[in-house]
């Protein structure tokens, strides 16, 4: 921020002249960011300390020593690699299928006209906004009725199977994605698909080769959001999975929180490890994020 850091370019200097208002703005923003990050940093601090240290000195004290031991311990005790894999098995297929299916619906309702395309869109959107608890009991019963061959689900039903969790995520999240995607697709000029149609392109080609590539930014934004939501889910696994070994990593975190012994430093370390993938995905796709959500803007 100091003047010495400024590049000699005239244009830049003109734009970034140091006015008191600017300084105040930066001070305000830095403080706000620090306040926002404090709880997280506090957890990081706790995770780096030993149980012996904090149980004697309390958390509000200077650490005797800092160590990554808790992370290693959480990784091992929590059997995190195993549970990361479980989550991966649920999140990735659910994410891909959600995006594929909802982009198909969005394509259908935004590019073609039939009597109930608005009704269909409303149905999907409304479904996404329902409180999840509303459907728990009947869904569980329904899942129990659907029997599957062993190659699809080890438990031979949708209960206690990653497939069941994937399906409900898809069913639920499709609403939001369809809504966003259909609105985005409406901003793509109709002439584009119209021309392709005249050239004899099939409906599927219009969807797959023409429309989808244009939706890349919004798909990236949705992928980030949906990844976060599906990854962080806690209710569906609790209701639908019965085998402790099949639980996703968010539920496995509970294993670290002992019933008869609690080491908050260990839980802090475990929680941070569990949050890591969402943070990574967020930082990797961050650039797409605001851009992808800036849809149907007044800029046209």
């Amino acid at each position: 921020m100091t003047a010495t850091l400024e590049r000699p370019s005239v244009a830049v200097r003109k734009k970034r002249s140091v006015t008191p208002a600017r300084v105040a703005l930066h001070v305000f923003l830095v403080l706000t960011c620090l306040m926002t990050l404090t709880p997280l940093l506090w957890a990081v601090y706790a995770s780096l300390r030993t149980y012996e240290d904090t149980s004697v000195n309390g958390y509000f004290s200077i650490a005797k020593s800092l160590t990554f031991e808790n992370f290693a311990k959480a990784w091992e005790i929590g059997d995190l690699p195993h549970f990361y894999w479980n989550t991966f098995l649920i999140t990735v297929p659910a994410l891909i299928l959600t995006l594929v299916l909802s982009s198909m619906v969005a394509f259908g309702v935004s590019r073609f006209s039939f009597k109930f395309n608005i009704a269909l869109l409303m149905l999907f959107t409304a479904g996404n906004l329902l409180p999840q608890q509303v459907i728990v009991t009947p869904l569980w019963r329904l899942y129990r009725l659907i029997e599957l061959p062993a190659w699809m689900s080890e438990s031979e039903s949708l209960i206690d199977s990653p497939l069941g969790v994937i399906l409900i995520h898809i069913a639920f999240q499709m609403g939001f994605c369809t809504f966003v995607l259909s609105n985005y697709m409406k901003t793509i000029p109709y002439e584009l698909t119209e021309a392709a149609r005249v050239d004899g392109a099939s409906v599927f080609r219009q969807y797959w080769q023409l429309t989808l590539p244009l939706c890349r930014p919004v798909l990236a934004a949705l992928a980030t959001l949906e990844f976060t939501w599906i990854y962080n889910d806690f209710l569906w696994a609790l209701v639908l999975i019965q085998d402790g070994d099949k639980m996703p990593v968010t539920s496995a975190l509970q294993n670290l929180k002992g019933t008869f012994f609690t080491d908050n430093n260990l839980i802090a370390a475990g929680s941070l490890l569990v949050a890591l993938p969402t943070l990574v995905v967020f930082f990797v796709l961050q650039r797409q994020f605001v851009g992808g959500l800036t849809l149907g803007s007044t800029k046209g």
């Binding site: 999907f124 869904l139 329904l142 069913a171 499709m174 609403g175």
Partner: peptide, 16 residues
Amino acid sequence: PAVVHLLFVWVPTLGS
């Protein structure tokens, strides 16, 4: 997609 959505979201809702 409509069937998946109806079957797993709206049918259970009616059930509830």
